[in-house]
Amino acid sequence: MQRRKFLTNSSVVLALASTALRANAKSASKSFIVKAGEARFGIHTPFMGVNPNDVKISGKDTDGQLAVFEYIGTQKVGPSLHLHFDQDEIFNVVEGEYLFQVGEKQETLRAGDTIFLPRQIPHTWIQLSDRGKLTYFLQPAGKMEEFFLTMNNLKERPTMVEMNKIHAAHGMKVIGPPLSLK
């Protein structure tokens, strides 16, 4: 039953991604494979310094129409409450359990579940299980790859003022703190 649910959800996500790519986009001129544990251009961008958060399909591959990331969680953390000005996000839970907040509504998602997060709506999530894995899509790609590279290259945690500037430069706005399990 879980496998069927996963396949159904994955089909929906892929159909949405395919539709987005066909709309006046130049895509990569040849196919490619990004193996498990690898990043599209060999540059890993761990979230919060530990959890792998790698580009699998770059906005450079899709003429800016789509970016796909894989997140592997080994710690129970998540991003600040934020919004994207010009991007929709689609998350598919591959493994584990996550609590998502979209606007004021909170929803627990498990392996096989998919959630659509519209642009301009504040959202965040936190991993509930000891281990988790997400595949997520941004449409259009925007500057998310650059955002993760910038964050990954910081030598220390940025101040709130610096964090707001970094988010703004990449088409996002921090609205509030991350979710907490405490």
Rank of each mutant, 00 (worst) to 15 (best):
D86H: 12
F85Y: 05
L128I: 06
L154M: 12
V77A: 00
L149D: 02
A168R: 06
N92S: 15
E156H: 12
E156V: 13
R131Y: 14
M163Q: 13
V94F: 03
I126K: 00
T124R: 05
N152R: 05
L154K: 08
Q120W: 02
E95Y: 14
E104H: 02
P79Y: 13
A169F: 12
L134M: 01
D86E: 14
L99W: 08
Q106S: 15
L99P: 00
R119Y: 05
Q101E: 04
L134A: 01
L128R: 08
K165D: 14
K155S: 10
F137N: 02
F148H: 15
T114R: 00
L117D: 01
Q120C: 03
H170D: 14
R110I: 01
F85I: 06
F148Y: 08
T135S: 08
D113P: 02
E95F: 07
Q127C: 11
G103W: 12
N92G: 13
F137P: 03
R119V: 06
K105V: 14
A141E: 02
D86G: 05
N92Q: 07
E145A: 07
Y98N: 09
P140K: 10
T150N: 15
V93G: 00
E145P: 06
V94L: 08
E162C: 09
T108V: 15
D88A: 09
T159R: 10
F91S: 01
F147C: 07
S129K: 11
R110V: 13
L154D: 13
Q139H: 09
I175W: 04
E146M: 00
T159P: 02
P118N: 11
D88V: 15
